[in-house]
Design a protein around this nucleic acid. Structure first.
Length: 197
DNA sequence: CCCTGATTCGC
DNA sequence: GCGAATCAGG
């Protein structure tokens, strides 16, 4: 695969939307997230925050970090100790990438698999329904942003309230749901047939 | 362990 | 220019 104008355009768009490199790589196909990141850098849009320069000292001739190896000497006593910052209130938080910020960027996460239609109860077999209820007790209660390729994306609760989350249990390989939810999401026609509604 | 982006460097 | 390998971190 090569970086055609179209593919680059998609890359730019998704990156601007805050999509992760891996998500973009999956969308494009034929490339790894490394390739995407590499391209992003070459395009010079690595910094998603292209803020108007606010710092008075851009430090133009800043040398790169020391190599992991083959770096015998470090001819760099004390470049600029001025840039140091006390940082009295270090936030030791593991903030997620698309953290819910007040104003600036917008996540727009709904990429991946389409979310399942919350099936009406009368469309599901009693057995399966019981199974789901059971599984919901074990749900990891993940938020939308915490969902990954291998977490069950079955929604639980009312999206209009705080009482809403996703199952989050390990999903079946290649499937968007865990074993139990795959069971109710992908019912064979035979079992659906002739069920009265 | 899962994931994220950043960087290097042989190709 | 490209991207795997690697680094650094949540």
């Amino acid at each position: 695969m090569s970086w055609t104008d179209e593919r680059v355009e998609t890359l730019k768009r998704m990156w601007a939307e805050g999509q992760s490199a891996s998500a973009i790589a999956k969308e494009l196909g034929g490339v790894t997230r490394n390739a995407v990141i590499g391209k992003v850098h070459r395009l010079g849009l690595s910094n998603r925050n292209d803020e108007a320069e606010a710092k008075p000292a851009p430090a133009p001739a800043a040398e790169k970090k020391p190599e992991k190896k083959s770096a015998p000497a470090k001819p760099e006593p004390a470049p600029q100790p001025a840039a140091a910052k006390p940082d009295p209130a270090p936030v030791k938080e593991e903030a997620p990438q698309p953290a819910f910020t007040p104003a600036p960027r917008r996540p727009i996460v709904p990429a991946g698999q389409p979310l399942p239609p919350q099936p009406s109860a009368n469309e599901i077999s009693p057995e399966a329904l019981a199974s789901v209820r059971e599984v919901e007790k074990k749900a990891r209660k993940l938020s939308l942003m915490e969902l990954t390729e291998r977490t069950c994306k079955w929604p639980i609760g009312d999206p209009a309230t705080d009482k809403f989350w996703f199952c989050g249990l390990p999903s079946q390989p290649g499937k968007p749901y865990c074993e139990a939810h795959v069971g109710v999401a992908f019912q064979p026609m035979s079992s659906r047939r002739d069920r009265r509604r």
